[in-house]
């Protein structure tokens, strides 16, 4: 069902690609712009990590919205297929 939906949507997804190819077929090659403005080496120094109490509230909220957790605070997800 989900897959059929994807197939149907896929066709309309490609429409704009066709129009793109059409619009740019005679356009000369250019450099690519990945960022709106360019900068390099924006780094931050290593330093003391955040404190445990600063993270405590987040942990509580994080575990509260997780679909499934165990009593230790792990997130519970599916078992890997290849282990079976």
């Amino acid at each position: 069902m989900a897959e059929r939906r994807e197939d149907e949507v896929e066709l309309s997804a490609e429409e704009i690609i066709k129009s793109f190819v059409e619009a740019t077929k005679d356009m000369p090659s250019e450099v690519e712009t990945y960022y709106s403005h360019e900068a390099y080496n924006v780094l931050r120094p290593d330093g003391e990590p955040s404190s445990e109490e600063a993270r405590r509230d987040f942990r509580r909220r994080f575990l509260a919205i997780a679909p499934s957790t165990d009593e230790d605070g792990n997130i519970r997800v599916e078992v890997a297929r290849w282990t079976r």
Partner: peptide
């Protein structure tokens, strides 16, 4: 991720 128990930390 523990693939056998399905737990993530």
């Amino acid at each position: 991720y523990d693939p056998t128990s399905g737990l993530v930390d």
